[in-house]
Design a protein around this nucleic acid. Structure first.
Lengths: 213, 213
DNA sequence: GTCTATAACGAGATAGAC
DNA sequence: GTCTATCTCGTTATAGAC
């Protein structure tokens, strides 16, 4: 009773994810986003799924391989989300707002961006994971650069310096804001920082809430 | 031949650091900043110091205690550095530049800010460490808020929104920029992001290098 | 594909000699 | 204050039955 392969989604020597592999990745992702790569074990995943550690090794022979596929899948999902934004959002500012919403959704589950998380542990990661990590950030920078370009040309966004430079600062802001907000257990810290950043970028004066509440 | 206690530097149930304790903390700090709290062990420290694990436990009974003292010391050192900046820098912009230099010095050793690092692993840390972590960030926010206030009143800095809000964004920018720069192994990414942020904050037009090089 | 069983190792921690 | 020796547990990973 083999489970049919649904999609050949993961390139670069990746597995064809079966339902079991997907379930493993889902749990591993949650653990990695909350506890970090060095903060969870096969045992943790096995308990949550109600299976044995050995069966996990059938799907992912090594933790290094699990980690690599994890990042690859995250990057692909993120890329799909960015594509959806491109299709749905009317202008650059709205795109950025939805981009922020992506991060907010992560934080609201008390998670951190997977790649921001793993970036901290970088020095302890196997090489393939480090490479996958950089790819994720580069993807994000590229997308942000395009959006900033679009917004500037449309007169919707305003900023100094080159778009790539501004894009990198933007990415750093969001990752850093998540990191700090999470250590206070206050997602609001992220939202307010993100709102400020977007307002600062926008040419239209925002209806900033002031500090009355 | 007991080593004389030099200073009672660490409050809150902390140890009086002997030379040995200091050496342990120095090594632990480097490891924690490069590999994270879950990325190093007593064995790692022992090897680097040429002693046994058991002797480490004499100074720091548990890793949790070592971790707590580590953050406390880091916070105190950082606080002293901020005080030195207050005394030496002429204006708010120069203070911020020196603040950035503090981060740069860390990065140049391929380290991450200790607390940015531990913030990622937050969920796996014992409670005393989490509290110490928040204290560090709050200290930083307070100092940045004061500097932003000073600079705005002097007409040297310009920004929207409240100073505390701007201070939080600033902190997030620096922590995030370190995080991402380190995952590329390119400290330049941090420097360029930090320069942009400071230039954006300054009322004086900076001599921004353009992109000719 | 999932299981039991176990190997091989490293972790944090303690007892007690020196 | 540092050592040797040891304990206990958790870790990744494998062999082989079902």
């Amino acid at each position: 009773m083999a489970i049919a392969r649904k999609k050949a989604a993961l390139p670069a020597g990746g597995l064809t994810p079966t339902a079991a592999a997907t379930a493993i990745l889902d749990v591993a992702e949650e653990l990695a986003q909350t506890r970090g790569y060095n903060g969870f074990s096969y045992a943790d995943i096995a308990v949550k799924l109600g299976v044995t550690k050995a069966s996990l090794h059938y799907h992912f022979p090594s933790k290094a391989e699990l980690g690599r596929v994890l990042i690859e899948r995250y990057r692909i999902h993120f890329g799909a989300a960015l594509l959806a934004i491109d299709e749905q959002a009317r202008d650059a500012l709205e795109k950025l707002k939805r981009y922020v919403a992506l991060y907010s959704a992560v934080l609201s589950n008390e998670r951190m961006c997977l790649c921001g998380m793993l970036a901290a542990e970088q020095a302890t990661l196997p090489l393939p994971m480090r490479e996958a990590l950089r790819l994720f950030f580069t993807d994000n920078e590229r997308w942000l650069t395009a959006v900033l370009d679009e917004g500037r040309q449309a007169g919707i966004l305003r900023f100094k310096a080159s778009t790539i430079e501004r894009a990198r600062v933007l990415l750093a802001q969001f990752e850093g804001a998540m990191l700090v907000a999470r250590s206070y257990g206050e997602p609001l810290r992220f939202h307010s920082a993100a709102s400020y950043v977007l307002a600062d970028l926008s040419t239209r004066e925002q209806s900033r809430p002031g500090r009355r509440s």
